Amino acid sequence: MKQFVVYLFFCLCSISYGQTEKISRLQSFDNRPIRYGFYLGLHTKGYAIESSPDVILSSGAGFHLGVLADLKASDFVSFLTEPGIISSTNSLTFDGEKTEVPATYFHLPVSIKLSTRRLNNVRGFVIGGVSYNYNFTANKNNNDNGANPRDFELKQHTLMGEIGIGASFYFPYFKFSPSIRGIYGFQNEFIGLGTIAKANISELRTRGVFLTLTFQ
């Protein structure tokens, strides 16, 4: 899945670049102090895990979508906030049984974007920042508050970092910006409640690769 996301990203960039013209489009767009838009995308998301040797973690594919506000600081620097929803499902196999681990987050990143000089209708950028995340499904696998030996939870409130690269393509009526980003959780999200869960798993930290398509 990770290879597919990377391949799709570069295909989109190649197709978009091939369709751009040398006539400059949306010349004054980046002069606006605040730009708004929306985004959607696909991702593969899993966890860095510390566990007993027989635990198997399967990464899951998912989707994300949201809106954005882009605040201009200079010709090459801007600050973004991109509130949205991230949803995916992983699976954990421990003690011989498979358990689905859904994760649906309210995702609120604050990022800095560094852009290159515009060449015709294309402009590259790098982006990095931190995000606050609220997990709506944190209690999905807590059935008996620890009385069940397989009970566990995920933390509801987490911080994550992200870094990525992308390019903006200027079309007659909108700016299209595909990017590929790496997401990593700063915190251990796993809370073992039952005896088997605590004995088999000690840490889960979010890791993911995100393909994001932004329209402004």
Rank of each mutant, 00 (worst) to 15 (best):
Q216I: 15
V77I: 13
S58L: 04
I86P: 00
S14Q: 04
T212C: 15
V55L: 08
R205M: 15
E97P: 00
M160S: 12
Y134M: 09
N143D: 05
L154R: 06
A48G: 10
N143G: 02
T206V: 14
A197C: 07
L159T: 09
S16N: 08
T89D: 05
V209Q: 06
S202L: 12
Y39Q: 12
G146C: 01
L42N: 08
S58A: 06
V126P: 10
A167Y: 07
N148C: 06
F10R: 13
L71P: 10
L159M: 10
Q187C: 12
P102V: 02
S87T: 10
L8Q: 12
R181K: 11
I23L: 12
G46C: 06
D75Q: 04
Q19L: 11
F63P: 01
S58R: 08
E21N: 04
I86E: 01
A73N: 08
S59I: 01
G124T: 04
H64L: 10
F4R: 11
M1F: 06
A103I: 03
F210T: 14
H157P: 11
R32C: 15
K45V: 14
N145Y: 11
N120L: 07
K22Q: 13
G96V: 02
L159S: 11
S24P: 12
I112S: 03
T214W: 09
H64G: 05
Q27A: 13
F169K: 09
S51W: 04
Q27S: 15
F63T: 12
L26P: 13
I196S: 13
E21Q: 08
V67N: 01
L213S: 15
S14F: 13
G124L: 09
G166N: 08
Y184A: 15
F186A: 13
A199T: 06
G194N: 04
V55N: 03
G84L: 03
R123V: 02
T206H: 14
L213R: 12
G84I: 05
F106H: 02
N141L: 01
F106R: 00
G129S: 05
S74W: 00
R25D: 09
E203D: 11
R207V: 14
I23Y: 09
Y7E: 06
N145K: 04
S59P: 09
H64E: 10
R117C: 03
R32L: 15
Y132W: 06
N143H: 05
P102A: 05
P33F: 15
K98T: 00
G129F: 07
R181G: 12
L65V: 05
I56W: 04
L193P: 01
L12I: 12
Y39A: 11
F176L: 09
H43W: 09
I34P: 12
R117S: 07
A199D: 15
T81M: 08
